[in-house]
């Protein structure tokens, strides 16, 4: 299959590369200007991160004294990182972030896929209404529910627990919508054949529908995971115990405590950013595709 699609893709890229009139120069003025603007934009977008890295590799004294520079007077040092990893809670927060984000992703995608399958394929009383209510709730921004949700956490004794951190973040009606749209266009014949052979609904779902849906499941998972990993408001509200905090929340609490420790602040930012950036470098294509499909609502 790859052999069939690959040449077509390259043909397509070529024809974009060679635009317009036949005989137009490949390095015309327009291309050079476009290239220059692109480089300018990319440098502008990369500089803040580069500057953060540079600051994190200086001593506090160098980072906090004018004039600021890319390399401190005492040279490059990993002191800020060493200090953070040795005495801070950063490793612990990283573990909490991984655990909660993975749990949120698994529960969200699992329950959404099952509900979407029910809405797409199964005929049961109340289906239409349940679907309408689920879709309507996409309009409700989670931020306007923080007050009653927090009240609920108090009542359930879920403040400062993993449950309180995870459960309110797993409802994603938009993902149900996206997955239902995908299931709707899968051919039913395979499923019907399996049913005739005596497979249960659960078996059909697990062995036929889910494997066929791998691309969309990956897309939705990536989207949910990034959202969970970076979520700030809810974890910030429901977790006060330092040992249960996620990275974004932990950073916010020590930021004020550090005051003017610029090198340490930047080192901590880089440490918190690193996992997703490394993931992105490895799975760039899948992540871009996942964001694009999910962002457009599954189309």
């Amino acid at each position: 299959m790859a052999i069939v699609t690959a040449p077509r893709a390259s043909v397509r890229e070529d024809s974009i590369r060679r635009p317009g009139k036949p005989g137009e120069k490949r390095f015309g003025l327009g291309r050079i200007v476009a290239f220059a603007i692109l480089i300018l934009l990319a440098v502008t977008w990369l500089l803040p991160i580069a500057w953060a890295v540079a600051t994190s590799l200086q001593t506090e004294a160098d980072a906090g004294s004018a004039p600021v520079s890319w390399v401190g007077e005492t040279g490059v040092t990993f002191a800020a990182y060493a200090k953070l990893l040795a005495e801070g809670n950063v490793p612990l927060w990283a573990v909490n972030s991984v655990l909660s984000s993975v749990a949120i992703t698994l529960i969200t995608v699992g329950t959404s896929a099952m509900a979407a399958y029910a809405f797409s394929r199964l005929d049961f009383r109340g289906r239409k209404w349940l679907y309408a209510i689920s879709i309507a709730s996409i309009m409700v921004p989670p931020q306007v529910l923080i007050i009653p949700l927090y009240y609920q956490m108090l009542a359930f004794n879920m403040v400062d627990t993993y449950w309180g951190l995870i459960l309110p973040q797993v409802i994603a009606p938009a993902m149900v919508f996206i997955l239902k749209k995908f299931f709707d266009q899968l051919p039913v014949e395979l499923e019907e054949a399996a049913r005739v052979d005596g497979a249960t609904r659960l078996r059909v779902f697990w062995s036929i529908v889910l494997p066929l849906s791998r691309p969309i499941l990956a897309a939705v998972s990536i989207f949910v995971f990034i959202g969970a990993w970076n979520n700030f408001l809810w974890p910030f509200l429901v977790i006060n115990d330092t040992t249960l905090m996620t990275l974004p929340v932990g950073l916010q609490t020590v930021k004020s405590a550090f005051g003017v420790q610029y090198a340490e602040n930047m080192a901590m930012s880089i440490l918190a950013a690193l996992p997703l950036i490394v993931l992105f470098l490895f799975f760039q294509r899948q992540i871009i595709k996942g964001i694009a499909t999910t962002g457009f609502g599954g189309t």
Binding site: M114, A115, A118, F119, L122, F124, L130, S137, F205
Partner: peptide, 27 residues
């Protein structure tokens, strides 16, 4: 009764319970 009444509700239930408790109830 509908064809897949039990299966339908079964598949919907995990999402439905979470949706009711952590979305509809707070609203």
């Amino acid at each position: 009764r509908r064809r897949d009444g039990l299966a339908g509700w079964g598949f919907f239930a995990p999402f439905g319970v979470l949706f009711a408790v952590f979305m509809l109830w707070p609203i």
